[in-house]
Design a protein around this nucleic acid. Sequence first.
DNA 1: ACGCTTTGATTCGAATTTGAACAACCCTAG
DNA 2: CTAGGGTTGTTCAAATTCGAATCAAAGCGT
Lengths: 168, 168
Amino acid sequence: MSEPRWLDAREMAAWQGFLLASNRVGHHLEQQLKEGSGLSHPQYEILVHLGEAPGGEIRMTELARSVVTSKSGLTYQVGRLEKRGLVRRRSCPTDVRGVYAVLTDEGRRVLEGAAPGHVAAVREALIDVLDDAELNLLAEGLGRVARRLDPDGEAAASGSDRGDERGD
Amino acid sequence: MSEPRWLDAREMAAWQGFLLASNRVGHHLEQQLKEGSGLSHPQYEILVHLGEAPGGEIRMTELARSVVTSKSGLTYQVGRLEKRGLVRRRSCPTDVRGVYAVLTDEGRRVLEGAAPGHVAAVREALIDVLDDAELNLLAEGLGRVARRLDPDGEAAASGSDRGDERGD
DNA sequence: ACGCTTTGATTCGAATTTGAACAACCCTAG
DNA sequence: CTAGGGTTGTTCAAATTCGAATCAAAGCGT
């Protein structure tokens, strides 16, 4: 811990690229979603997860783990979605405290309406800008980065990936 | 605009990796900065830019362009930094409306105190997790992605990079 | 059955972000 | 010189975020 190892030019470029790309892609998608379907990105993510879950319902806590926002943030966003009729709350039969978030028909409709524009935006902003090698890097390298910072278990499967592949 | 081109498995993995890594690295650094120096990431970025500017001062509008936040967001954060004595405001002599944000001695001290821990965190979270080839791809690929989404000039220099390299 | 520790979800207050509206000002064409 | 158009920075309200505190209920060992 003597003199800190500063970043050389290449490392700096990588860091700057990562930082800028994160922010700009984030803003770009936020924008697209908002004007395309009136959804924020957190909200869209919630709908996606619900749409893929069997029965279209997930417990709040589990949902909070799959999504970027905190627990209280999730309560807020689900409340918002509920007010728009895209999601419904159902209390868990086996656990009085438990609450399921359930995707309504209307919610599924909105989700399916929003998805094409969203993937198109993702392609335009990120995927289609990169070549094969670069795509692999994002998947492998950044996957590794993300996994190392996993708030949950430090003990990730030693295989190249975990089992929670989800769509978009 | 017929049937949208969905993401195949590899593209999906890349997108997920990028998204997760962005969020987790962001949170990680935010956390580290906050408890290391009581600075938020936006605030730290402001100090860095000021620290590299000649005379340690930059016009508000120019600063707003270099940083992630919006114009009003910048006003807020500079106000915050001013209250902590790390930044001072100075009105521009040639333009009455103009305002320079100026790094104070105390501000420079705090910046220099915060920098080592920050780069260490950046290394730990991102840089040191990737090998040489991956760093190069990251710099090139995400640099390209970021440049394409540049809110300012669509007309970027055709060279591989622009001239605004900044430290961290 | 009884305490005690965890867990599930919400509520609350404080901090932050954004875009729109605003007031003041610069500059250039005519 | 002077009106019009663009700039500059701030203010404002609304939306969102987070973490800590809260409250009820489940799980557990005895």
